[in-house]
Amino acid sequence: MANLTGLAAVGNPNPNKSFEVVQPPSDSISSLCFSPKGNYLVATSWDNQVRCWEIMKSGATFGSMPKASTSHEQPVLCSTWKDDGTTVFSGGCDKQVKMWPLMAGGQAVTVAMHDAPVKEVAWIPQMNVLVTGSWDKTLKYWDTRQPNPVHTQQLPDRCYALTVNHPLMVVGTADRNLIVFNLQNPQAEFKRITSPLKYQTRCVAAFPDQQGFLVGSIEGRVGVHHLDDSQQSKNFTFKCHREGNEIYSVNALNFHPVHHTFATSGSDGAFNFWDKDSKQRLKAMSRCTQPIPCSSFNNDGSLFAYAVSYDWSKGAENHNPATAKNYIFLHVPQDTEVKGKPRIGTGGRK
């Protein structure tokens, strides 16, 4: 650990020359999400805060301006926007989900409750419902105008990850369960799969065409999984976020909204861009001095936001909030980094 600490102290926190977001959170950053309607970025943090910045472009450079913030009683773990870009939902260790009418300048109100921390939230515009996943081993659907959930779905274990691309929803839980839902029949499991990865699930991402999903784990590996039995031959896993014998967690998976390639962000402090169809890595970025716990593309894919902060993978004893600085950076993806490439032969390169 001494080496790592030294590296963090003297290394360059921004080796990719990204634009730095001003006034970042004062503790580890747990989620990032862009407004679906514009360049407003929300971050949640272990400092109990939910913050929003307006991201502005001036020529070839980007700047940021803090817009508003709201708070929970305990660390905040997840966030999502309503599809109209007016409202933010956030959930966390206070077992609550808050609805924050950010663009109207309103106060956050509690709209959902669980019996344990809330790990994931997603808004489903086609159903006008909020879905929340918790460590209490339930998934709940909410009409935010009503105090009680519309439906409570029991999960086999604690919810660790969630992705929605209607009608597809995939929930990753402890013990490597992946539960697939068809949201046209949201009260029944469509399929339950054991993760193709041998270790704990950290993140999932539905394919843009809803035909399958990605899953990332703590062992520096990603699985590409198709739902249709006739497509099983297209399933594969690949290694990433590794250096020599060091293996790092894959913390985030983000599909590009236009090109449908994807980014992985890891505890090694790197983010990479990939094309699942040609099985190629499009671009490997330089490692930052701390892990990347979360990341997000904006609505048109012209910006990629990523956090650089402690990710708790080495426990609370190795975290010193007084000395660890937290960053949010904005990377401008180049076409060569995010545009898919034609397949090479049959196997492609990894």
Rank of each mutant, 00 (worst) to 15 (best):
S195P: 13
V42I: 14
Q231K: 14
P24Q: 10
V88K: 00
L214N: 05
P66C: 08
T163V: 06
L139W: 03
M1Y: 07
K341Y: 01
H114D: 00
R145W: 10
G212L: 07
N235S: 09
D311T: 04
T289W: 07
S69L: 12
T152R: 09
L7C: 09
Y248E: 12
D136G: 00
S265E: 08
F181M: 07
A9I: 01
K239H: 11
S217M: 02
R51W: 02
S295Q: 07
L168Y: 09
S18A: 15
Q184K: 13
H319E: 13
A205Q: 14
V204S: 08
G244P: 12
A104I: 00
A112Y: 00
F329T: 07
P342K: 08
K341W: 04
H259M: 03
G348H: 08
S69R: 10
P36Q: 08
A188C: 04
S217K: 03
D143N: 15
V129E: 15
V118W: 00
S313R: 14
W100L: 02
H166E: 14
F236E: 10
N326Y: 06
L162G: 02
M169P: 02
G6H: 11
K82T: 11
F236R: 10
E120D: 01
M1V: 12
I292S: 08
T144Q: 12
V10M: 11
F207T: 11
G92W: 00
D229A: 14
P208D: 13
S69F: 07
V170T: 10
N185M: 05
N12I: 04
V204F: 04
A206D: 12
R242G: 09
P293N: 06
N326F: 04
Q231Y: 06
W312K: 10
T132N: 01
F329D: 08
A205G: 14
K119Y: 03
A307G: 02
V118N: 00
V338K: 03
G216L: 06
A174V: 05
P196K: 09
A60V: 14
C33A: 14
Q74H: 15
H151K: 13
L41W: 11
S35I: 04
Q231F: 06
V180R: 04
V76D: 06
S35V: 05
T261C: 04
H241T: 05
V42Q: 02
F181G: 03
K137Y: 12
G63F: 08
E20A: 11
F236Y: 15
P117G: 04
K140E: 00
Q334T: 14
P167N: 07
Q96I: 00
F273P: 01
D228A: 15
T110K: 01
S64V: 10
G348V: 04
